[in-house]
Nucleic acid binder design. Structure first.
Lengths: 344, 344
DNA sequence: TTCGCGACTGAGCAATTGATCGATCGTACC
DNA sequence: GGTACGATCGATCAATTGCTCAGTCGCGAA
């Protein structure tokens, strides 16, 4: 980086840089002082910065993990990454991550924004910390079906309702289970206008708030009764490491072709990819492989995660394979209001 | 300095500061990204800088001694101070200082500028390094009389001639010795129009280039035969530590009232004070007390000095008395072209 | 509840800064 | 010596930034 500067140059650059950055003079003043033209001063300042004579350091608190965020962003070509500080207790860890996600979500939303929402324990914590400050005319829509067991706060419909309540927006529920008994049943359900309509709205969302599921026996899909332990074991045997909206992927981010896929009532991976800002929230300790798979699948734009998982994922990623199969267009962190039809 | 920031604030400030200073986004972009107004981002950035979250460091080479310059500027309320790197050999030390002074001088000059010039070995080296690059329609005028012994390069007239030659300007000589035999003789000399005119021009200079003389037996005044060793001893006995243009001062910067003063053909201390930018050049090792006295006399605006003397003067100053008896108006390092009548 | 105070906000404008472009200058190669 | 190339320069203009000011909001006291 450091150019090979002549001593005179070095001296002039340092002097000018000090005048500008430390003494807060204007380039104009400096130009007069050193009998140079203003553009020349500008070029010198530029050179001083590029050559490393001027060092700007952001004194970030160590718990901020800005470096981890940068690495995540870069490694996985994310639009953004937010790493929340480590907590030893799983519940407070979940809350920390959810708080960050809620803040982020708040920044994404404009009147008229449609947000597709998944299920999950992490996702389910988000509404508690969602304080957008002002009324937002947004629509929160379930992006996948519900779970048979009553486990209210982790069900997408319930999360949508809570989010909508927090900001004065609307919730659009999906009246269907996440997994049905057969592909045929799924197709018949999708033919129901109530279901089809909700999924169409979800597919046209500009923001999605999703969790990343694991494949262990304690994962949400199993706990909530969507899938049995046997089914989960079969998925694991097929190489599944995690899911987004019930779409399972392997460690390389490739979709798992399995019968489950045909019984799923949820947005597909392709639907997700078309959504501008997909925000994933994850905090559990068993998650690194699932996160890595999801990231490599290229469905995630923004990852909100705890420091432990972030480090683990980066370590795993460094050890194997390509990490960004889908170079996405740089999507702005907060998109403009889109004059999109909203549902009632 | 560091305010007591709340954790949230801290996080936001750090994030925004990083986006701005590290990622080079505009405030506008950042405002969009964080859903804030642009002025708000500005205020946050401002706070981040003032609170020390953003640290800007100028990676100056150690031989630059920018810190010494700052201390000199501050301690003695100088418009500027330039410290040149230490050299072991007195002659190359002198050259280093003279080079800095020449550069500085070059920056001060505009067409029409009048420069009053003293004698001295350090001053005498300046012309060799004076390369203003372009023709300058300046007038260099002797601010004190010459010395009886032929010691060409340290005589003010000769220095003026050399400087003028370097930039294509004019030299105005003072046809008088520095010290004459009596006060009466001095007055008669000053009545000569040739002498009076030159001194008037010198008094109206906007820049002065002066040395600071010592009071040891090897100083320029003695070497050049202006004063005898006896006279010098008498001055020392009166407390004199050094001179500027033959005006001797004590360690506190007070003028020495002595018969010599009345025999001197040179600008007075008051004349010097009226000159906008008085640049003093000093390099010799015996000089710290002389420099301190001259600085305290408040006649110097810009000090060009070697690192050794700089440190010594600051040490001495720290140990005793007030250092800036005359708070000067902040004078710009390079003044504007002044439509002042020039002499031919 | 209402009022007053102070802090904060963002619109709008002025100053500063960044970037482009043709002109000029030095230099290396023919 | 002549020519062509590249570097450098400063005039100029557009973008960005700093700052002021009137308006708003929340909060505590009456």
């Amino acid at each position: 980086m450091l150019e090979d500067l002549r001593q005179d140059d070095y001296e002039l650059l340092a002097r000018i840089a000090r005048r500008y950055y430390v003494d807060d003079r204007t380039q104009e003043e400096i130009a007069r002082e050193f009998a140079l033209s203003r553009p020349k001063v500008q070029r010198l300042l530029d050179r001083a910065r590029r050559s490393g004579i001027v060092e700007i350091h952001i004194q970030a608190p160590p718990w901020l993990n800005l470096d981890l965020e940068d690495q995540l962003r870069e490694t996985f070509r994310l639009a953004d990454a937010i790493v929340s500080p480590s907590r030893s207790d799983p519940q407070s860890q979940r809350e920390a991550v959810a708080r960050s996600a809620a803040q982020y979500l708040g920044r994404c939303l404009r009147d008229g924004t449609v947000v597709a929402v998944s299920h999950g324990r992490d996702t389910g914590e988000v509404p508690r910390f969602f304080h957008p400050g002002r009324r937002l005319d947004c629509t929160f829509v379930s992006a996948m079906g519900g779970s048979p067991r009553v486990d209210a706060p982790t069900n997408p419909n319930e999360i949508c309702r809570a989010l909508a309540e927090r900001c004065g927006g609307r919730a659009a529920s999906l009246y269907a289970p996440a997994y049905v008994e057969s592909a045929e049943m799924r197709d018949r359900l999708l033919a129901q206008e109530a279901v089809a309509h909700t999924l169409r709205v979800a597919a046209q969302a500009s923001v999605a708030l999703v969790g990343i599921g694991g494949t262990d026996d304690g994962c949400t899909m199993v706990r909530s009764g969507c899938l049995s332990m046997d089914e989960m074991a079969r998925l694991r045997a097929q190489g599944a490491v995690g899911d987004v909206l019930g779409n399972y992927v392997d460690i390389e981010g490739r979709p798992i072709a399995s019968p489950h896929q045909d019984r799923l009532v949820a947005l597909s991976v392709d639907d997700l990819r078309r959504i501008e800002t997909v925000v994933a929230v994850v905090s559990e300790v068993e998650k690194p492989p699932a996160i890595l798979g999801a990231l490599r699948a290229g469905v995630i734009d923004v990852l909100v995660v705890d420091a432990g998982n972030a480090r683990a994922v980066l370590d795993m990623a460094g050890a194997s394979g390509p990490n960004h199969p889908r170079p996405r267009a740089a999507s702005p962190r907060a998109q403009e209001v889109i004059g999109r039809a909203t549902v009632r």
